[in-house]
Amino acid sequence: MTRKEYNKTVDMYSGRLFGYVLKCLQNSEDASDIVQDVFERLWNHRKNVEVEKAKTWLYTTAHNALINFAKKKARMDLYGDNLPERSQETESRFEMKEIVDMVIDTLPPLQKSILLLRDLEGYHYDEIGEMLSISDSQVKVYLFRARRKIKQQLKEFTVLYDVSEQGKY
């Protein structure tokens, strides 16, 4: 990959890659750091990455970086260096987007990545499989499980919300 091809790759994929990482982390500073690190790795490996496969390489590297970030954060939480977390207290009314984001955050990292790549970014099953080094059928299974879990949790939330609202009147 030449310098010109690298710059074109950055222009083509940086926005969508940032959106994907941001959706996973819900923190723009951390997302920016990871995306910058991914593009730095691409630059360091540019001689080994074919231009046609740069997109797949970027998303695979970003996915692995997200998993490493989650593991590091979990270790820090275990040792008492808690990062600021969302408040557990919820207001009586949420906007639907906030509710869905909270539910998506509960998904395992692989399911979350697949769901975001498919539903947010619009990638096909084969592209996602290639990015995450899994088969198309595994992508479909994980996506089905993620959607089923979201649907179940949204149903539970709706029941809880309805019960709490009945007590107010």
Rank of each mutant, 00 (worst) to 15 (best):
T2C: 12
R3A: 06
K4W: 13
K4E: 13
M12V: 09
M12R: 10
M12T: 10
Y13T: 00
Y13G: 01
R16K: 10
F18C: 11
Y20H: 07
V21S: 01
V21N: 05
K23L: 11
C24H: 12
C24S: 06
L25G: 00
Q26E: 12
Q26S: 13
N27C: 07
S28N: 10
S28Q: 10
S32Q: 03
S32T: 04
I34T: 05
V35L: 05
Q36S: 09
F39Q: 02
F39C: 05
W43V: 05
N48P: 07
V49C: 01
E50D: 11
K53S: 15
T56Y: 04
W57G: 00
L58W: 01
T61G: 04
N68F: 06
A74R: 06
G80V: 04
D81K: 09
P84A: 08
E85S: 14
R86C: 14
R86F: 11
Q88A: 14
E89L: 08
E91F: 15
M102E: 08
V103Q: 10
I104E: 03
D105Y: 11
T106M: 08
T106K: 11
S113Y: 00
L116N: 03
L116E: 03
R118D: 01
L120I: 10
E121H: 06
Y123F: 14
Y123T: 03
H124Q: 11
E127M: 05
L132Q: 01
S133P: 02
S135F: 05
S137H: 13
V139G: 00
F144I: 07
R145M: 10
A146L: 06
R148T: 13
K151S: 14
K151N: 10
Q152W: 15
Q153C: 07
L154W: 06
L154I: 15
E156K: 15
V159A: 09
V159L: 11
K168F: 12
Y169H: 15
